[in-house]
Design a protein around this nucleic acid. Sequence first.
DNA 1: AAACTATTCAATTAATTTATTGAATAGTTG
DNA 2: CAACTATTCAATAAATTAATTGAATAGTTT
Lengths: 215, 215
Amino acid sequence: MNERNLKDLLYQEFARIGKSLSSPKRLEILDILSQGPKSVDALAKSTDMSVANVSQHLKTLFNSRLVKFKKEGNFVIYELADEVISDFLITFHALAEKQLIQVQQIKEEFLNEQLGLEGITLSELIPRMEKGEVLLLDVRPKEEFAEAHIPGAISIPIEELGDTLSSLQVNCDVVAYCRGPYCLMSADAVKILKANGIKAFRMEQGVKEWLQFAK
Amino acid sequence: MNERNLKDLLYQEFARIGKSLSSPKRLEILDILSQGPKSVDALAKSTDMSVANVSQHLKTLFNSRLVKFKKEGNFVIYELADEVISDFLITFHALAEKQLIQVQQIKEEFLNEQLGLEGITLSELIPRMEKGEVLLLDVRPKEEFAEAHIPGAISIPIEELGDTLSSLQVNCDVVAYCRGPYCLMSADAVKILKANGIKAFRMEQGVKEWLQFAK
DNA sequence: AAACTATTCAATTAATTTATTGAATAGTTG
DNA sequence: CAACTATTCAATAAATTAATTGAATAGTTT
């Protein structure tokens, strides 16, 4: 083995991680898994893919050690292989956003022009929460809230929001958050809240971003 | 545009960065560029590829905004588009090494079994340098040394090491470093030094790792 | 301007990757 | 044990990507 062979071998191994990050659908799967463990079936529903296809992507991710799984009943539950991967994904997104201005544009056009939503950031949120000026709403599924959530938030999954609304006493502004910048459940929530006369804002950041912020 | 379309578009943009990181040769190019600007021709020589092929890879990297270029005479000089990219590459390597134990194995087998070299780390080096116990040798090409180097190091490019050796007065241990963990110029240097009866060690880390370490 | 250099472009071929489908497997429930 | 579920496997077709080659471009030197 000479130096060139060694380099080829090493970079080939590195590229295996890169390959895993080269498919849009796999990146979406990784993002969803950064919220907590999910079954293949649940992932297929979230990503609008066939189960067989998701299974194939998961196999790729498993081969590059980005995810691991455990069997529960006849479900196979996948999760990120290590918590550094969730940190890495945030770094990756930050880099990608910085480089690809188009990403910013796509996102903002959709949110602003099509939905006309006002946003709020983590650093604006915290002082307002401490003063009791806002109610923080976690609209992700119950399991994801149970897995981890921003302290002080209350959990109302987006599907239940419409029904729960009447029984909910709100006398301040509401801030909704969900899985993070590329999830739009919080945008849907704000639409529902506004339609019911509640002053509501969308927060881009999710639990993972909060954890990094709090460090 | 509905939510699914938006997600597909966003993840497609993210995947462009991933795609750039999915080819071993492109990763090698990025690593070399993290040492400083290089011409297409120089990159072709370093990576053992045809110029046309390197040009194609550079085009891909340029399209995902990872590199930029300027024209100088009839050379086109490429460099990393932003310094966050060099930070990102270190994070990426760290993740890859952690996940793919094989990478560690490949590297260590080659270095230990085939060369029988002793290594030293940055944190071991610094106190010893302060005490004046070691001479730090940068064996990269002169331009890369000029671009950036570890303070206190002296520059002797690997090609010149054999000739310079006799005129060099050495009365302490020598530590050689080069581009980083996946570059083997420092290993070659240690071999030459040892062959001339000088006690020499290889340091894995390069300038970029030192900058992160010094932060 | 002619000869020369470095780089890019375009066309081809080979190789790899993706999504789709239907069948196979393994575990669970009635 | 039969019916059912979730998941994986295997085979295929479509799409994408990589390396190679030779020609085209743009700038430099004589």
